[in-house]
Simulated assay, not measured.
Amino acid sequence: MNDTFTEADLAPDPQEKRDRLLAVADRVAALVAVLAGGVYIGGMIALGAGAAPIVFSMLPRSIAGDVMGAIFARFDAVALGAALAVLAAEVTRMVAARRRGRTILSRLRRSCTLFMAVCAAYVALSLSPRINDLHRQGVQRDDTPQGQVLEAVHKRAELFGKIGMGMAFGLVVLSVFTIQPRRAEDEEDDDEAAAPLPPGPRDD
């Protein structure tokens, strides 16, 4: 048996290395989720509260509808990308957290992620194409049967857009608050490394 103390004895064991890698993965995934959620929220606000009122006030209603339909169709691709990003980030965080991720806040975060992705997909893959198809047919939001259909689809798209924004906001907040803290033994190791004892005899 070799009792000689070597530098290898100070190296972290495989489990510690794995835990540190998982902690890094958790933080990176949280950052991705926050950025993707922020992009989705910012885009919805910019288009819904900024672009749409200006376009409809400056252009004839028939042309404005086509313009905003094309703009939202372009943004739908961004929304779907953000939804896929937050889903991938959530899967990564679930794997990285393991048992530590079974908290109420983590479950709420997962629910927000899922509902945001569902809302974004529903609007992008169903409602927006339906609205654009009605616009191409020359349908306007009026008292005609087709106009009432367009009005109903518009209101549904607005509703799910607002729900998606609310879920995205919850996701951003919970992503920050559920980042796994550093383990106590890691902090103690850092403290010991940062403040080594001076050489020489000690007065205990």
Rank of each mutant, 00 (worst) to 15 (best):
A157W: 00
R141T: 13
P145S: 06
F72L: 12
G166V: 02
V32H: 03
I104S: 12
D191M: 08
T4M: 11
D190V: 14
G161A: 04
V118K: 04
Q180Y: 00
M58D: 11
E158C: 01
D203G: 03
M58K: 14
P129C: 03
G166K: 02
G43C: 05
S62P: 01
V78F: 10
N2A: 14
D191T: 04
R156E: 11
R110A: 15
P129V: 09
P14E: 13
G81M: 07
G43E: 04
S106L: 02
E185V: 06
A89T: 07
A70L: 05
A33Q: 13
C119L: 00
G138W: 10
D66Y: 00
R100E: 15
N2Q: 13
E90H: 10
E185F: 09
D26A: 12
A89S: 15
V34Y: 04
L47Y: 06
P129A: 05
L159H: 08
G101F: 02
A23I: 00
R74V: 04
V28T: 11
A11Y: 08
V172P: 01
F56N: 11
L174G: 01
G81E: 05
V39W: 12
A168C: 05
A120L: 05
G138T: 10
I45Y: 07
R18E: 15
A157G: 02
A70E: 09
P196I: 06
A36M: 06
F177I: 13
I54Y: 10
A195N: 14
L174R: 01
A36P: 04
F169A: 14
A36E: 01
R100H: 11
L87V: 12
H154Q: 08
P60T: 05
R100T: 13
L171S: 11
Q137I: 02
A120W: 00
I54M: 13
Q140E: 15
L114Y: 07
R102N: 11
V86N: 04
L114F: 13
E185K: 05
A82D: 03
S128P: 00
R182P: 01
V67M: 11
R93I: 03
G138R: 07
V39I: 15
M44V: 10
Q146N: 12
G101R: 06
Q15H: 13
L134Q: 03
T144I: 04
I63W: 04
I179Q: 11
V86F: 05
L87E: 03
A11H: 12
F56I: 08
Q15K: 14
D66H: 09
G138E: 07
V34H: 02
V139D: 03
L174F: 06
E151Q: 09
A30I: 06
L31K: 05
I104G: 10
R27W: 09
M68W: 01
A85K: 01
G37F: 06
R202N: 07
A83H: 03
A73V: 06
M167Q: 06
K17L: 15
T144Q: 04
V173Y: 01
V172D: 03
A194T: 10
A64P: 08
Q180T: 04
A23Q: 08
G38D: 09
Q148S: 06
G38S: 14
A157P: 00
E90F: 06
L21E: 14
M1F: 14
V118N: 06
M165W: 00
F115A: 09
G200D: 07
V32A: 15
A194P: 02
L159Q: 09
A79F: 02
L47A: 13
R183F: 12
R93F: 05
A152E: 06
L114W: 12
D191W: 10
A79I: 00
V67A: 12
P199T: 02
S175Y: 08
A70F: 03
